[in-house]
């Protein structure tokens, strides 16, 4: 009996084994190793297998690490909010008003996505630096007496570079959502006497929330876990959690502690992904 069943579902079984095998070896195993390592101990220069909660205790009790996580969360929140607002405005203009410019502007929106992340962060160094173009322009125009040093190597420069890099990540999914809204919806709302802002708020906006939430989630996670921008554009006080983790795998040679911090970052990211999926689902169910 079960043999016949096995025979009938042969292909499904082969497929399941292949997919599960890939998942276990190439996805499960690496992350499970990080988890296991987070309980190991470090003696001076050797790492020892153990089941110690010490690394997590250190992450939670030491003010420095809490501060770094808060730093990263602060930068990621600012970047997410600003790029959501700007990205939404841009997407709305493209979808609603751009008309014959739409294709060209859409093209201009994706070009930056295809250029190097590293170089897009670096650009801001030559713009905001002491000898940068902004300072030169401001001093020559007489706005500043001498070049300002508050522009670079702080949270401001990190945030502006990340907004610059991630703005299209919000604009694109929102644009896609706006494109899909049938014109009839907006006309029906107007015919029923809604003023334009009410149509936007009650009809258009809710339909774009899933796209907006997805884009914002991606921006938050990528900013939160970035180490390139803070090390190019941040000061010594602005290191982010990724920089600290990387240092544990480099000079500090404390892989177990680095692993524990990485697990914390993973948990935060997973929580946010869950939240954005939930928001997207609740809003679209509420409107269905």
């Amino acid at each position: 009996m079960w043999q016949a069943k096995l025979q009938r579902h042969r292909i499904e079984i082969v497929c399941a084994i292949a997919a599960i095998g890939y998942l276990v070896v190439f996805i499960g195993l690496p992350y499970a190793n990080v988890f296991a390592f987070s309980f190991w101990e470090k003696d001076l220069y050797t790492l020892r297998p153990a089941l110690s909660p010490e690394n997590y205790a250190r992450a939670f009790t030491n003010d420095l690490y809490r501060q770094v996580i808060l730093n990263s969360a602060e930068v990621a929140t600012i970047v997410t909010l600003v790029s959501s607002v700007l990205g939404y405005l841009l997407a709305y203009y493209l979808a609603v008003y751009a008309e014959r410019w739409r294709n060209l502007l859409f093209f201009l929106l994706i070009v930056p996505l295809w250029t190097s992340f590293l170089l897009r962060a670096y650009i801001w160094k030559i713009i905001l630096g002491r000898n940068g173009i902004l300072n030169s322009a401001l001093t020559q125009a007489g706005v500043l007496d001498q070049p300002a040093s508050f522009l670079l190597y702080n949270k401001f420069s990190i945030s502006i570079a990340l907004i610059y890099i991630f703005l299209p990540f919000v604009a694109l999914p929102v644009y896609a959502a706006l494109e899909k809204i049938p014109r009839g919806y907006v006309e029906a709302s107007a015919d029923l006497g809604s003023p334009p802002w009410a149509t936007f708020w009650h009809v258009v906006f809710p339909l774009t929330v899933p796209g907006l939430a997805a884009g914002a989630m991606v921006v938050f996670c990528l900013s939160f876990g970035d180490f390139i921008t803070p090390s190019l554009l941040g000061g010594t006080g602005d290191i982010m959690i990724a920089n600290v983790i990387i240092a544990q795998f480099g000079a500090a040679y404390d892989w177990p502690f680095g692993s524990a911090l990485a697990i914390l970052v993973l948990l935060i990211v997973m929580l946010l992904v869950g939240l954005s999926v939930w928001i997207g689902r609740t809003v679209s169910r509420g409107r269905a």
Binding site: P30, Y31, V34, G225, I245, I246, F249, A262, V265, V269
Partner: peptide, 11 residues
């Protein structure tokens, strides 16, 4: 979804 550097260090 996971920050890339974490996948890097996991490997």
């Amino acid at each position: 979804i996971v920050p890339q550097f974490i996948t890097g260090l996991a490997l």
